[in-house]
Design a protein around this nucleic acid. Structure first.
Lengths: 386, 386
DNA sequence: GTTTATTTTGAATCAGTAG
DNA sequence: TCTACTGATTCAAAATAAA
């Protein structure tokens, strides 16, 4: 913990280091995390200059290698403003694969052992991204489809409307204990577990950043709703989130709102400038707002024996399951039912012939003529213990 | 055209060649297409024995290389019947890649110059499939997401519900003049152009083939609705459709209904037998059971959390009920009122001491001095999402 | 026969802690 | 590093049973 803390170097609230200072720091290989800052430069070089195993999550929206040929026109003859920027040009699949291999390796080095990565792409590049993730030992947890509610139609009627993009969520390795806020995402989805297909609109309207000329500041700005779901679901407040293709800073903006620290890396000055102006306007939510639905797994463990020690249940008292079968509570917190002895879980599993059993919800006891689940006593004890 | 016709050798309507005859024909390298038949054997060998440039479309559902570990149980302790068949076992990604390279090369050789291929997979294998397609010169036209309306849930709450599979549609080469029945698919989609995400139920009920013991005949039978859309959209009547992983013959069944010729290749005798029995019962143009989901269009369910993600409500904002009681909106779409936390419905019910509550009509928020029910935002979102 | 309640099932890389 | 133990965890649709 101390190891990581000494690397943290938060930007002052009033403003970040200027870019000249930043470049110097990076070039000298200072092992400090430029938290909540936008680092100029090539993302591979910058990542390699940062201390290894220091980042909780990486969100990466790399160039898509679109390979567009001529101009595309709408049926009314207006020209579609396509992604034709220099940063999206690669000479071949091999060149794109080399680039992918290098930046993914640099990203993997930066991740903590239990860290994870999100990448987003379209059919032009996502298969190469996914294959290389697997080749490097990342462990894919889900692929997620961002289903656009308002995609651009296919004007020529030669293919299906390309109405989605694909995200891949992967942990650093198979053994990683990745962060997944299951209950928060379930709450966000009105009580049913979140699926791998997310219906969200593209980034437009007020959210879409414009330059002085009124044109879009970045050709592929991602919606904040997408990052909200990613960061809420797979990071905790205070986590460090790095975006090596920061663009106009959607990842940073949502991270700031949600009380996560971000590191942005971006090569193009115009994008950095737009992102800085944007980030200055973002405010963090207060603590009560940031709090999310808590998982039961995070609650303190209460040994069943404590109910007896604390006098909430008496030794010798009988417990009953849903089928009316009974078991006697023994002084050491184990049960006995006929000749089956063991914990509340073991005896329940044995009676049901089941591979496992949650004894807390399986057993009830009698109080004033009523059957009361023993889990109620656990809740009572947890409340007492604060 | 004549060149192709001489290769065609349709099965007699009353029955196909028996398997012994078939094997002999293949072994001698007879350059004839076994139309509307199921060829036994390894798909690579069989494909290499058929004449090149003779097939219009290939639909391939190869093994997914799932790499499952131990058993999985549902919360009710029942065991999940997993895909653990020998044909899905590969020793490494390298072995899977070799297999993929070989069968794709054999498939590409069989395709006519203007032919196309569909492959289907999950995140376990689809990135390797897509990358190898590109490596071999196939030209990806779309990736299509099959969004399952009734997927298996994630029982342990450790990941997102894996609710989709991915199909890739690619032509033999960039210059191919592939078949795309734009208007047919547009008609199928109620007059708006077909998108790259298809919502279809999994294969179950009467359509799911059972063996004598009443168990599923094949662990991964695909729904006919999926193949209906593929074949209707990317083939013409009379086209030759080849499926190298024929299984229990969904591709053949739909091809027969739609008046396309099929060639099935399948290694496992039990699958071939089930497929033959199935195909015998299929009649051309029996479309009644297809596209069942198309008709029912219920109002889309909008989770309250989406209002937050979409910025229609801000986290931290206060909601008010009819009695003037207030609750604060949290980032995961839950509310907090004093020490009561939960969904809009739960908190409303708790405040009223009621068993249930419709949060959508219970809560309002302040906009420009006016109190506005949150249900208005839901209606707004529904309109946007179409 | 009709309606309602209960059971079954689906391509799944599905646990974490203490000793 | 390995073993033992605790205890958290599911949605939609079809099939079957019950009323």
């Amino acid at each position: 913990m101390i190891h990581l803390l000494i690397h943290k170097m938060k930007a002052s609230p009033n403003g970040a280091m200027n870019e000249a200072e930043m470049t110097t720091k990076i070039a000298t290989g200072a092992a400090e995390l430029p938290l909540n800052q936008i680092v100029p430069g090539d993302c591979i070089e910058v990542m390699n200059s940062l201390p290894e195993a220091s980042v909780d999550l990486i969100f990466a929206d790399p160039p898509y290698n679109l390979q567009l040929k001529g101009d595309l026109h709408r049926p009314d003859n207006s020209r579609v403003d396509a992604v034709d920027d220099a940063w999206d040009q690669f000479s071949s699949f091999a060149a794109y694969d080399r680039f992918t291999r290098d930046w993914l390796a640099a990203a993997r080095r930066l991740l903590k052992p239990h860290g994870a990565i999100w990448v987003i792409g379209s059919y032009h590049n996502v298969f190469r991204l996914g294959a290389e993730l697997q080749n490097q030992g990342f462990w894919i947890l889900n692929d997620v489809v961002w289903r656009k509610s308002n995609p651009m139609p296919n004007f020529r009627g030669k293919r299906l409307t390309n109405a989605h993009e694909t995200l891949i969520w992967a942990s650093k390795q198979e053994a990683s204990k990745y962060t997944f806020n299951y209950d928060a995402l379930k709450a966000l989805n009105e009580g049913v577990q979140m699926r791998s297909d997310w219906v969200l609109p593209i980034c437009s309207g007020h959210e879409r950043l414009k330059d002085e000329a009124g044109d879009k500041a970045h050709p592929t700005q991602k919606p904040e709703s997408l990052l909200h779901r990613v960061l809420l679901g797979t990071t905790n407040p205070g986590d460090v989130v790095l975006d090596p293709f920061f663009g106009t800073g959607t990842t940073g903006a949502v991270a700031k709102m949600l009380g996560r620290d971000f590191i942005g890396i971006e090569r193009e000055k115009s994008y950095r400038d737009a992102a800085r102006a944007r980030l200055d306007k973002v405010r963090k939510y207060d603590r009560a707002t940031l709090e999310v639905t808590q998982s039961k797994r995070a609650l303190p463990r209460i040994p069943f024996g404590q109910l007896i020690e604390r006098g909430l249940l008496r030794p010798g008292e009988m417990l009953v399951n849903a089928r009316g079968q009974m078991a006697k509570v023994r002084v050491d917190g184990t049960l006995i039912a006929d000749d089956i002895r063991g914990s509340i879980h073991q005896v329940g599993a044995a009676l049901d012939g089941a591979p496992s059993c949650n004894g807390w919800t399986y057993w009830s006891f009698r109080r004033e003529g009523q059957m009361v689940p023993i889990d109620l006593l656990r809740q009572q004890l947890r409340a007492e213990l604060g």
